[in-house]
Design a protein around this nucleic acid. Structure first.
Length: 865
RNA sequence: GCCCCUGUGGCGGAAUUGGUAGACGCGCCAGACUCAAAAUCUGGUUUCUGCAAGGAAGUGUCAGUUCGAGUCUGACCGGGGGCACCA
């Protein structure tokens, strides 16, 4: 029995597709375009199963859309700047550029072995000056359009990585990569004004209908819009006023203090003259932002001695504290405290003996006796103790208070966002240089466009920690573009999210002298289907949405949203194993004993643990290359698609891979060695078919319909199941023929053979997006000379999707009692008596008339006894 | 703490969106082929009960809406995720 030789077949077709330039595309105004993009990888050196899943999903979509007649752009590139390259340089003495290039070469070869339908002409690497020169230009344009600016700011400093981290890169107060507790430092940093688009980025989420709700929700929370008011308090004995942001202006009459952040200008001013306060401020700055620290840190304050004048109660003067729980970065960096209705304020008030006056009365409480203990009341209710607000509901009181504040010039309605501007400066070497120069006379000066790119110097060393650019003997010395005098280059580089915020547009025109030609971008953008991990739900996707708008403002692009459709894939998981000493064991090291137990290869027992995301640290990884070597790319791809829906986690199992492998061989045998001889090509459909052939033909059309529908709805696992069902149906038809060859002489054999051939061709066409090499090979074995990748997607004949007779379920009181076989669309007059005539129904009715009979055509009859 | 998602056989998961629950696969059991094994093929496989035909129960739990609920509503329990001193 000839086994399927995947090695030969896969390399052969990869070569043939490349020679035929099957997946190279150009703009074609006469065809609808479809842009499929998978999140490009960081070139770590080897692909892992997460990549395999991501690209198997993307390739399925790309090939499917191509077959449906779209002009499909499907590119691949490398997110090539970043810390691991520098770490490799430090640990192994390899230059980051060399390390990165070698990794890219290795990974490109691995990807090519997967048979993915990329237009490789468009490959790009973000560390290439030809790429990053354009983003330097973009940055200059952003600066011109007031979207990039520089300011002193408190930053998250990672003491291990020696760099600044974005807020998003701080997880539970620790660096996302190093895990070290993050410190606060004041540095001069470049920022992109993402907050200018906060509202638009929020409202536009509603229009992203082909994005998962989950991701939209996460972005919504991240942007964190809250409507409220700004209240102005006069500071007694001073000319200036204290501005406070609140969403609870309805509780203003319950205010008993004000508090400002340790970094608030007013705090700094007083601290300059007050060593005690200075000490308190320093203490606040030392406080780490880690979860543990926040949980345990007590609310603490320092009384400035100043008081704020309550806007509506002339003789109420609120003490102003500097408090450790007030953040400078949010709102105005100052609050008023209403202890009765805010837990933090209450904790603070109890500690410092401040008044707790309830002003919102729960509906079931009595105004005379209602008191707040150690739990603030944050629910709804009626306002009391509040003069002109008394008796109002919370929402009405907010509106009324806002109006009064405006009227008396005591405040204004305002909106606050949690989102902050994006700090893009990094004190690292392996990134895109920021194209600015520091001149003693002229200040911060942009590099002239003609002098771009500012290239990274390659002659650097990594022997000492910190930024090699800063230590380079000559690189940073240059002349001021403005006055010509000696000046110093900016030695910071961009956050690597910068590169990934526009690469999708570069793919439209990857070798352009411009960032991309406007025509090419206009044709290809936006990405129709973007596919990648949920871990990028906020950062990368939000930055890209902002970048696209910024690029539009600067005239590069004409779209608002970069990704019209988004699919977030689940993780690839695997069982974990440990030896007796608790060390993790690689699945590939396991040996199965005769009694079914596992050992680690040295005869020592191994225990099986939880199923977890594949990770190097737990060693529960399977190398895709081994799978491709042993089973072929098609098997790996098919398994990736068949077991779980894309958005859910997938458990990688050896048994599952075997199952996919078995199916591939079964399909191979079935089509290359059919039990009956097939017509050499598919002619016209024979006029008469045996009932079995007729049924099979219908099954083929139903499969076309349901597979297409499943793929359209991203139910790829269902699509695989439907393909397998069709395989089973065709196997039955084929089996019945070989078992009863006598029928052939009756003249029906031709019809059966025709249906079988039609079925095989359909099967091959349907499975091509999943197992392209196998499909292409079978297509040619069926006698075709043209490429399957150029064949159109099959279309089901609607007439073949319906049956003449249908099985209708018969229930009594909602419980299934039997089925009847009736003509499709048979009238109630026919169905009803047939249903009632069933023995099982009669037995329950015992001669009585049913109280009611519900007939749903072609579906069900429910007899109410 | 707040917000969101989720719960179906031994396992991964289907279910035309309110109409025959368990498609398809994995695993397991039995059989065929084989000296034997592997591979392959055939059949079975929700649970309980029964020799059987059959009967009963069944989609986390409890209630509700409906002729009819895996699907809709409410409460509760379990699992997962996001945010978190955000005023």
């Amino acid at each position: 029995m000839a086994r399927y030789n995947f090695r030969e077949t896969e390399t052969n077709w990869q070569k043939r597709w490349a020679e035929a330039a099957s997946f190279e595309v150009d703009e074609d105004p006469n065809r609808p375009k479809y842009y499929v993009l998978e999140m490009f990888p960081y070139p770590s050196g080897r692909i892992h199963m997460g990549h395999v899943r991501n690209y198997a999903l993307g390739d399925l979509v790309a090939r499917f859309k191509k077959a449906q007649g779209f002009n499909v752009l499907h590119p691949m590139g490398w997110d090539a700047f970043g810390l691991p390259a520098e770490n490799a340089a430090i640990e192994r003495g390899v230059h980051p550029a060399k390390w990165t290039r070698e990794n890219i070469d290795a990974m490109r070869e691995q990807l090519k072995r997967m048979g993915l339908s990329y237009d490789w002409r468009r490959e790009l690497a973000t560390c290439d000056p030809d790429y990053y020169r354009h983003e330097q230009k973009m940055f200059l344009d952003f600066h011109k359009h007031d979207l990039a600016y520089r300011r002193e700011s408190w930053v998250n400093w990672d003491p291990v990585e020696n760099t600044v981290l974005a807020n998003e890169q701080v997880i539970d107060g620790r660096g996302w990569r190093s895990g070290a507790p993050v410190e606060k430092r004041l540095l001069s940093q470049w920022f992109l004004k993402i907050t200018e688009y906060a509202d638009e980025l929020l409202t536009a989420l509603d229009g992203l209908e082909r994005w998962p709700d989950r991701v939209r929700l996460m972005q919504r929370n991240w942007i964190g819009k809250s409507e409220g008011a700004r209240v102005f308090f006069d500071i007694n004995g001073r000319d200036d006023r204290l501005e406070v942001f609140t969403t609870r202006h309805d509780t203003l009459f319950g205010a008993s203090f004000c508090a400002i952040a340790a970094n608030h200008p007013l705090a700094s001013e007083i601290a300059a003259k007050n060593p005690e306060l200075a000490e308190f401020v320093a203490k606040c700055n030392r406080l780490s932002t880690s979860e543990a620290a926040i949980e345990t840190a007590e609310k603490e304050g320092f009384d400035t001695g100043l008081t704020a004048q309550h806007p509506f109660i002339p003789d109420l003067k609120l003490p102003i504290y500097v408090a450790n729980f007030v953040l400078m970065e949010y709102g105005t960096g100052a609050i008023f405290g209403c202890p009765a209705h805010d837990q933090r304020d209450l904790d603070f008030a109890r500690k410092y003996g401040l008044q707790v006056l309830p002003v919102v009365l729960p509906s079931d409480a009595d105004a005379a006796t209602f008191e707040v203990g150690n739990e603030a009341y944050i629910g709804d209710g009626r306002i009391f103790n509040s003069e002109f607000l008394d008796g109002m509901a919370v929402d009405d009181a907010k509106a009324e208070m806002a109006a009064r504040l405006v009227e008396g010039n005591h405040g204004e309605r305002t909106t606050s966002f949690r989102l902050r501007d994006w700090g893009v400066s990094r004190q690292r070497y392996w990134g895109c240089p920021v194209p600015f120069v520091h001149c003693e006379a002229c200040g911060i000066v942009p590099v002239a466009e003609a002098d771009l790119p500012v290239e990274l110097p390659l002659d650097v060393d990594f022997d000492t920690p910190g930024n090699p650019l800063d230590r380079h003997p000559t690189w940073k010395h240059t002349d001021c573009p403005s006055c010509g005098k000696p000046a110093r280059r900016e030695t910071d580089t961009f956050d690597t999210f910068f590169e990934s915020s526009w690469y999708f547009a570069r793919f439209a025109d990857a070798h352009s002298e411009q960032a991309f030609s406007p025509e090419a971008a206009k044709y290809w953008m936006p990405v129709d289907q973007y596919i990648g991990g949920i871990e990028h739900a906020v950062l990368h996707l939000l930055y890209s949405r902002f970048f696209t708008r910024a690029l539009k403002k600067c005239g590069y692009l004409d779209v608002d949203e970069p990704f019209a459709g988004l699919m977030t894939q689940g993780m690839v998981c695997h069982e974990t194993y440990r030896d007796m000493d608790g060390n993790w064991v690689y699945p590939s090291d396991l040996v199965r004993g005769s009694d079914g137990s596992w050992t680690d290869g040295k005869g020592r027992p191994v225990t099986t643990g939880r199923i977890e995301k594949m990770s190097k640290s737990k060693r529960n990884v399977v190398d895709p290359e081994n799978i491709i070597d042993n089973y072929g790319a098609d098997t790996a791809r098919l398994f990736m698609l068949s077991d779980s829906p894309p958005e859910r986690d997938l458990e990688w199992t050896e048994a599952g891979v075997e199952g996919a492998w078995r199916y591939i061989n079964r399909l191979w045998r079935m089509i290359t060695e059919p039990n009956i001889s097939l017509p050499s090509e598919l002619g016209d459909r024979p006029s008469s078919l045996t009932p079995a052939a007729e049924t099979a033909l219908k099954a083929i059309h139903k499969a076309i319909f349901s597979v297409t529908d499943s793929i359209d709805r991203f139910r790829f696992n269902s699509a695989v199941a439907q393909i397998r069902e069709l395989t089973n149906a065709l196997g039955e038809l084929e089996g019945s023929k070989s078992a009863d060859p006598g029928e052939d002489s009756a003249g029906d054999g031709d019809g059966d053979a025709w249906v079988l051939r039609f079925g095989f061709e359909t099967l091959v066409r349907l499975i091509e997006p999943m197992t392209p090499h196998l499909a292409e090979e079978l297509w040619h074995r069926l006698g075709h000379r043209e490429m399957l990748t150029e064949q159109p997607w099959p279309v089901a004949d609607p007439a073949m999707l319906v049956d003449d007779r249908v099985t209708v379920a018969v229930q009594v009181n909602g419980k299934l009692r039997g089925t009847i076989d009736v003509a499709r669309d048979a009238s109630e007059d026919i169905v009803r008596p047939e249903a009632l005539a069933l023995d099982t129904v009669q037995k329950i009715l015992e001669g009585r008339e049913p109280r009611r009979v519900i007939v749903v055509p072609n579906k069900i009859v429910n007899v109410v006894a």
